[in-house]
């Protein structure tokens, strides 16, 4: 009861704060203003972050974020584009999109190539194994025959850095990886906690190891040397957090039993300290 009261008060305070700062977004860079529309790269295969709904329309929390920024920046004019883990950076650096809201995990090596906004999401990785697997904790992964994962992900980087001797098999999409895992090409599957939770939920023959690793934060990606644009995005993210916009988006796009999980990984929830 007490906590509820406190959180209500906090929410009210946050709303007041939001209202007070509502109009304080910095000036939009001329390049975007002249363009008249906002071009955003989003994921199309990562529910509830970015995906296509039954009608083939863009959907998800990150898509809502993109629409909201467009609302503030260009009066709602927006062009969205599907990007994959492999092609998103070329799309950005080649100037095809103005920003990426595409489950973009932050690493020091990546930050040399693009600029990141303040983080708006955090998450970890976990392992998925068959119910009867001897693998009980993360360290047991050394006994694994083959770990299936996605190419170019934080999991792939983590295994390269921490468990280079564990054989891995890296595929292009979650469906390929899951297929390979279920066909026995690997005895472990590594992916985001969020992704694996959905899979483990639907499938009784598998379980998660439940020892998260490779905790990382995700942000919006922009080209280097666009400080005005980055400042605008940071201010917009700040405003989204203050106005508590993530909550309704999560409730709109995530399954109800996962609301708690996602709400804990988006602002205003606290983020782990990572550098």
């Amino acid at each position: 009861m007490m906590t509820r009261l406190v959180s209500t008060c906090l929410a009210v305070l946050a709303l007041c704060g939001g209202a007070a700062t509502a109009q304080e977004l910095p000036a939009l860079p001329d390049a975007i203003k002249d363009q008249g529309t906002l071009r955003v790269g989003v994921r199309c295969d990562q529910p509830p972050y970015g995906f296509k709904d039954q009608n083939g329309d863009f959907a998800g929390v990150e898509v809502e974020m993109a629409r909201q920024i467009a609302q503030w920046a260009t009066g709602g004019q927006i062009e969205m584009m599907c990007v994959t883990a492999e092609n998103r950076i070329p799309q950005l650096t080649a100037g095809k999109v103005d920003m990426l809201i595409a489950t973009l995990g932050k690493t020091p090596e990546r930050a040399r190539v693009i600029d990141y906004s303040t983080p708006y999401n955090w998450g970890g990785s976990d392992l998925l194994v068959m119910k009867d697997s001897p693998i009980q904790k993360l360290a047991d992964v050394r006994q694994a025959e083959t770990v299936v994962m996605l190419k170019g992900t934080t999991q792939a980087a983590w295994f390269d850095a921490n468990e280079p001797d564990v054989p891995t098999m890296r595929l292009n999409s979650i469906s390929d990886a899951l297929q390979a895992f279920k066909q026995g090409r690997g005895d472990v599957m590594a992916a985001d906690v969020a992704t694996l939770t959905v899979i483990a939920e639907k499938d009784d023959s598998v379980r998660m190891v439940n020892e998260p690793f490779a905790i990382s934060v995700g942000g919006i990606g922009v080209r280097k040397n666009e400080p005005e644009w980055l400042a605008y995005i940071n201010a917009a993210l700040d405003r989204m957090a203050k106005e508590n916009l993530y909550i309704p988006w999560i409730e709109k796009w995530a399954p109800e039993d996962k609301w708690g999980f996602y709400k804990a990984s988006f602002p205003p929830a606290p983020f782990p300290e990572i550098e």
Binding site: I89, V113, K151, G152, D176
Partner: peptide, 20 residues
């Protein structure tokens, strides 16, 4: 298909580090 041949290694690295 995930065979770790030359292109795979390069593409994997590119997607991890964003260096093309």
């Amino acid at each position: 298909i995930g065979l770790m041949e030359l292109t795979f290694v390069a593409v994997d690295r590119m997607a991890i580090d964003f260096r093309m």
